[in-house]
Design a protein around this nucleic acid. Structure first.
Length: 420
RNA sequence: GGAGAGGUGGCUGAGUGGUCGAAAGCGCUGGUCUCGAAAACCAGUGUACCUUCGGGUACCCAGGGUUCGAAUCCCUGCCUCUCCGCCA
């Protein structure tokens, strides 16, 4: 959520910012409501002041045993007037709120302007292998090795699901353990949080109300299945006052992610690349505002360490404004090269939300001047399994159809060095 | 699921209709003392909004209600705790 003061004081900046994200909220309408609101407040507060004064007189007279009927009578009408103005104020504030919650965060000045085509690749890492045999896509090699069974998943849940078995399931477990170990070693606190959360929690990180269509929702209790562990982990600090000494807060967790992919019908229908449920390790940071952009760099570097450890080539790009998510001010995408599908696959998004989420969650901290402020929140995948496994099955594929286990995973695989 | 108790500031916790924004303690900040620290003592210490910058208004889980006036009384919801039931 944006600060209404930013709208008041720099309306042009806000308008330009949201336009870069292709948002069309009528900012002037909100400013008009904001003026109306203040007018009502001035009026009602004057009346309340009067009532408080007279009420004090009533109390005094009663104490002294005097008659206060005249005062009581005169305040009756004032009281009714106050009640109706209070209602009017609430209505206006509700209307303002209902508009504010749909406004996206505004992009940081360093973010390239434009649509997806303006994303900027800022670095690449690793050598793309030139195999002297035909590298099979992961769904083919996975089925052949008996470790991936898309048909079974489809039977259970319909299209857009995968099922791993044997060493495939083990590989996923190994990756999760490898990644969690890496991040906790670097100071991230491991969190195992709920996968089902309330609407209020979804509001806190910005999934609601805008992304409602993308999530699975329970019918009986109005609960939501998390689309990412970001939701559960970040919201641990919802409605919380943080002591500055605790900052920066670094957390990491592993969870399944549930996504309806409502707008993506017909895209990437084969394999594990686009599915309704996948596993992911997610890192979250809560930091002082002054440090959030350097923290974004180190967060991205942290995600990159996983790929470097696995020796998988990747590239990092800065997302252009039109490609940024609702809540993000700046985002780096990590894409890895998958040799079988011959594509760069998005494997991690590392974003700085500035105080956008903190404001929605009402997460605050006291700074060194004892002033209450909103911290900045960040998160980054570290990493998503449903795209990492395909990359391993393809990039580590051998001519005989077997798959070599990346060296760093061997200990996690109980010493197994090759599948097939 | 059943019965009961309760939700008050950064924290603990008093307060059952009228100077209560709220006692006390802890914590925090400053000072005295000290070579320095601890202890002790003294002082200070909520947030948001409106403002003609004098001040004013609101906030004691949330939302309604009663009243001239509500932290305090009533209703609804949410959450926590205790006991019972059920249960991986």
């Amino acid at each position: 959520m944006l600060d209404i003061r930013l709208l008041r004081e720099h309306p042009e900046q806000v308008k330009a910012g949201i336009a870069k994200k292709k948002d069309t909220t009528d900012i002037d309408k909100i400013l008009q409501l904001d003026n109306d609101r203040r007018e009502v407040i001035r009026e009602v507060e004057k009346l309340k002041g009067e009532r408080n004064t007279v009420s004090a007189q009533v109390a005094q007279k009663k104490k002294a045993g005097e008659d206060a009927e005249a005062e009581i009578k005169s305040m009756k009408a004032v009281g009714e007037n106050i009640a109706s103005l209070d209602q009017k104020q609430r209505d206006i504030e509700q209307e303002i709120h209902n508009l504010m919650i749909w406004i996206p965060n505004i992009p940081h000045e360093s973010v390239p302007v434009g649509g997806e085509e303006n994303n900027e690749i800022i670095r690449e890492w690793g050598e793309i292998r030139k195999a002297d045999f035909k590298v099979l896509p992961h769904w083919e090699v996975g089925e052949k090795l008996g470790i991936l069974d898309i048909a079974a998943a489809t039977k259970l849940s319909g299209s857009g699901f995968y099922l791993l078995k044997g060493l495939g399931a083990r590989l996923q477990r190994a990756l999760v353990a490898y990644m969690l170990d890496m991040h906790t070693r670097e100071g991230f606190l491991e969190i195992a949080a709920p996968f089902i959360v309330t609407a209020d929690t979804m509001f806190g990180t910005g999934q609601l109300p805008k992304l409602s269509e993308d999530m699975y929702k329970t019918t009986e209790d109005e609960m939501y299945l998390i689309p990412t562990a970001e939701v559960s982990i970040t919201n641990c600090y919802k409605q919380h006052m943080i002591d500055q000494k605790e900052l920066p807060i670094l957390m990491v967790g592993h969870s399944p992610c549930f996504r309806r992919e409502a707008g993506a019908a017909g895209k990437d229908t084969r394999g594990m690349v686009r599915v309704h449920q996948f596993e992911k390790v997610e890192m979250v940071k809560i930091v002082e505002p002054e440090k959030s952009y350097e923290e974004l760099e180190s967060l991205t570097a942290q995600a990159e360490k996983i790929l470097q450890g696995l020796k998988i080539p990747y590239r990092v790009s800065t997302l252009a404004t039109g490609d940024l998510s609702f809540a993000a001010a700046k985002c780096y995408d990590l894409e890895l090269w998958a040799e079988g599908v011959e594509r760069w696959l998005e494997i991690s998004s590392c974003s700085n939300f500035e105080d956008f989420q903190a404001r929605r969650m009402n997460c605050r901290y006291k700074d060194s001047d004892k002033k209450t402020r909103f911290p900045h929140t960040l998160n980054g995948s570290g990493l998503a399994l449903a795209r990492l496994i395909p990359a391993i099955l393809e990039n580590y594929q051998n001519a005989d159809g077997s798959v070599t286990i990346p060296e760093v995973l061997v200990p996690y695989m109980g010493g197994i060095e090759k599948i097939g």
